[in-house]
Design a protein around this nucleic acid. Structure first.
Lengths: 335, 335
DNA sequence: TTGTAGGCGTTATCAA
DNA sequence: TTGATAACGCCTACAA
């Protein structure tokens, strides 16, 4: 009884495999008693139809891939929660991929997903304005994709973002209004979508208030914590900004560490505000001002858009671009 | 050319399907030139063998499930990173499941994985000392399981834990040595493995120092943040402990919030130490003393043990129990 | 080194 | 309401 399958089950119960199959698939064309008998027996013998055989037959995997730059980050972790929530309700499995913000990994993952392994992909991209041909191949195979937070503008898929420009503008303006004149912009990749959009908000806020733009104040950081530490340390020592607008939370954390070591006090000597979904931002020393994205909701929305496409009758319907609002939390670090 | 498969590929290249198959499977029984020709053509036409068909044929899914209580938690996020690292190298996919610490979800997930969907399962359990029959079914189907961090003692599978007892003992002793006499133990489920083991370390440290045990100081909390807040608030107001030993980081955070609101100052009025893998613990106000588990390494180890079992010749080999050491970081919150 | 063919477990179609 | 059957795409034993 170890390798049980529909055939054996049918034999034992003296019915056909089709009837057994129907019992598991919510078919109406089956006698209620028969169905109950089958399910009871199956449960007792711990049987479930093999998923891979069904997938092969149906050409549907009921699986979606989630590709994110990192997991140890409340934003992505919460977004994954949102995605999982929706997927679970639909009975879908979630394959998780982490790119570490390395473009090559993203390309490799996407290429490997090209074998019918998943029905759809939700991703927050890691690359720069590179060749995106690997993504276009997915379209050929009818595998829908949804971007969230970090997107490629040149790829026509559904997207879920926040009002990055307005938030960045507001955050920068806030720093200006509290007296900052030399505001550094910390970014991981200034040429990538959100890096660029957020940078524009920063620039425009400076312009509006007649503060000349200084290229030295745009600090392009890296993936490596240690490198970031020294980059930021160098900036604080040499360029001496009086405000920091960080597009990624870990750069704000790095700044905190540097300030501790250099005895720079926040907010007196340096004010900080950062994009961050960190739940305990109020508990930092000092409490960190944040632009907080609705991470969980973004995950929900991204998954919903994906299922819209998976279930849609009209595959030529235009892709949707959904913008959720971030929220500014002014705390001690920028007062 | 849309629905390409091995057959069509073979036809176009005027060779047999077996040869094509061999090209993809690292077979030695194939002419090098033939292989290259096939792979080049496949790449050009964006073809990869269908995973589900291979799985069905091979009865191997190259997929493993990771079941954790939460994702928005640096410990689990880092552990997942470790698991992913190993799995990726082995060419395995990772299915992610989050239980929210709800036992019923765990049971349901595990039951659904009983259809050959995965080759193995790595999990940190959520339940109490319940009926674990659902796990025993996996054994029947030869699906190996590895527990990490939170384990069931009565289930004979490989386990990766930390020295919870010693760390808890040391943490409690540390609080005693800094002068605490009324130390509360915050726990999410005192009857579950780690809750129990950590509680024992706490108890024994009290005993060693001749401090009588007070049942009111063992605070069993919940999944709900709001409920935890009021439980803890009530404890601080009514029972007035002078030290907190928290077995879960979010209870420590909740305590911080309560202290802020009640104007209780840490560490003067109340000292705190908590299990936590939070990277920015030093940045909290005040810096949080932690017992930090080697989360990433635990993930690596758990995955390694799982692959040991998957690849092992002797299925009757005894299960392994691996204990990694946690590290005590004394910071301002308990000085 | 290559080809042939059967079967992995399921489900949809068609017939009864 | 039920049953027989072919097919999903791949891989491997066996034959050539």
């Amino acid at each position: 009884m170890d390798n049980i399958n529909i055939k054996k089950l049918a034999k034992v119960l003296k019915i056909s495999t089709s009837t057994v199959s129907r019992a598991f698939n919510g078919s109406v064309d089956i006698n209620k008693d028969t169905k109950e008998r089958i399910l009871a027996f199956a449960k007792e013998h711990n049987f479930l139809p093999n998923h891979y055989a069904s997938n092969l037959r149906d050409k549907k995997s009921k699986t979606l891939a989630v590709i994110v730059p990192e997991i140890v980050n409340d934003f992505f972790a919460q977004a994954i929660n949102g995605i999982e929530e929706v997927a679970r309700k639909k009975g879908f499995y979630i394959l998780l991929y982490r790119t570490d913000d390395i473009f090559e990994k993203e390309v490799s993952f996407v290429n490997y997903l090209n074998n019918g392994k998943v029905d759809g992909i939700i991703m927050s991209v890691s690359g720069e304005a590179n060749d995106h041909n690997y993504l276009k191949k997915l379209e050929q195979k009818n595998i829908p994709v949804v971007f969230f937070d970090r997107v490629y503008e040149d790829i026509d898929v559904s997207k879920v973002t926040t009002n990055d420009y307005e938030s960045s503008f507001a955050a920068t303006e806030h720093l200006i209004e509290t007296g900052c004149r030399r505001i550094a912009y910390l970014v991981v990749n200034k040429s990538v979508s959100i890096g660029k959009v957020r940078g524009q908000g920063y620039l425009d806020a400076l312009a509006k208030h007649g503060i000349p733009f200084d290229d030295d104040l745009v600090i392009d950081c890296s993936q490596e914590e240690k490198i970031n530490y020294s980059i930021i340390k160098n900036v604080l020592e040499e360029i001496k900004p009086d405000g920091i607008f960080s597009s990624v939370e870990r750069l704000a954390f790095a700044t905190y560490y540097v300030c501790n070591d250099l005895n720079i006090s926040i907010p007196e000597d340096l004010k900080i505000i950062s994009f961050s979904s960190l739940g305990i931002a109020p508990l930092l020393c000092p409490a960190l001002s944040t632009i907080t994205q609705p991470a969980y909701e973004m995950g929900i929305k991204a998954a919903t858009l994906l299922f819209d496409e998976l279930e849609k009758k009209n595959p030529a319907a235009p892709k949707k671009q959904h913008v959720l609002k971030s929220k500014l939390f002014i705390r001690k670090s920028s007062m």
